[in-house]
Amino acid sequence: MATQALRWARPTYAGYLFTEVWRSDTALANTETATVEAGATLVGEASGNVWFDTGLTRGQTKYYYLRHVNTAGEKTGFVDKAATVENFNAGDFGAQPASDLLTAIAGLTWAAGKGLRMSGDSAVETFDLASAGVDFLAAVDAAAQRAALELGALALLGSINNAHWSGTALAVGNGGTGAATPAGARTALELGTLATQAADAVDIDGGAIDGTPVGASSPAAGAFTSLAAAGLVTLGEGAELEVTSGEITVTHAIHAIDTPGGTVDLETINGGGDILFLRTVHNTRDVVVKHDVGNIRCSTGGDLTMINALKVVVLIRFGSSWHASLLG
């Protein structure tokens, strides 16, 4: 079977209602009204500008006669169209052409509470809609949609400030401060007194640095890019040390040293920082700082003798060696 499409210019005058389509298997002598009404058959009416004649046989020639009718029932004269029946592309006549997507949609099984979504190119599938989704899609306006989503008054605001906020404080676990006041917020966030101090006026009167309590007298190590002292710098003095087997072990920057009796040699210094001051205790028990025997290098290139309590040796560490100079 085949279909023949007829197309014409739709009238633009006021009151146009539809177009009659008459058909004949043979050509009529003329298009007079009496001739067409007697020799042809009214096969269709169309309010647009296209009409499809179906159930035909390909290759047949049909004769069509058209006339327009207005809202008052008045009719124009006939015009004729002869056509040889052929199949046609529906897209050429403003109809929807074949579509893989529409075919896929037509093949789906539908049920209440189902939605439609794309699952690939020209591929679709149904999915179950939650009750909230059904309520949202069924909402008749924006207010009903907000109600379906259980949105409050804040959803209508373009920005939020303190005037819009009421109720209990947002908990810390939910990203809030857990309090309505600054002091309460600091407590909830477990902030100490440093949180309220200015950067140029910080008062630290407790705690510890590297395990040493702030303000305590015991030493602790510190690393600084630079250290500028506005007042006095005090170096802690350690206990008196006795030279034993040519060695001492230092714990502070300043030490007094002594001998078991008589003059002894100091060859090796263990421990300590980078600067060290040594002095003797007794004028009758000398200490000879040996050059290049252990880990001490003397500035004179020879040994340094600390012959009384007024002599002080200053040592600076370079790597694993101490470089010594005698003062006094």
Rank of each mutant, 00 (worst) to 15 (best):
A142H: 07
A144R: 08
A144G: 15
A147Y: 05
A147R: 13
L149Y: 10
E150Q: 13
L151S: 10
L151Y: 13
G152C: 07
G152Y: 03
A153Y: 03
L157D: 12
L157H: 12
S159P: 00
S159G: 05
I160V: 15
I160Y: 03
N161Y: 00
N161H: 01
A163W: 00
H164G: 07
H164N: 15
S166G: 12
S166K: 12
T168W: 02
T168F: 03
T168K: 13
T168D: 12
L170Q: 13
A171C: 00
A171N: 04
A171E: 08
G173Q: 05
G176W: 01
G176P: 00
G176L: 08
T177E: 01
G178P: 01
G178D: 02
G178C: 02
A179R: 01
A180W: 01
T181V: 13
T181A: 10
G184S: 12
G184V: 06
G184R: 07
A185Y: 02
A185H: 03
R186D: 14
T187C: 03
T187W: 01
T187N: 14
A188K: 08
A188W: 02
A188F: 05
L189T: 07
L189P: 04
E190D: 14
L191N: 05
G192Q: 03
G192V: 04
A195L: 05
A195M: 08
A195S: 15
Q197G: 03
Q197H: 08
A198T: 09
A199Y: 04
A201H: 02
A201T: 03
V202D: 04
D203Q: 10
D203N: 14
D203S: 11
I204M: 11
D205H: 06
G206D: 15
G207K: 09
I209N: 07
I209P: 01
D210R: 06
T212Y: 00
T212V: 12
P213W: 01
P213H: 00
G215A: 12
A216C: 02
A216T: 05
S217V: 11
S217C: 03
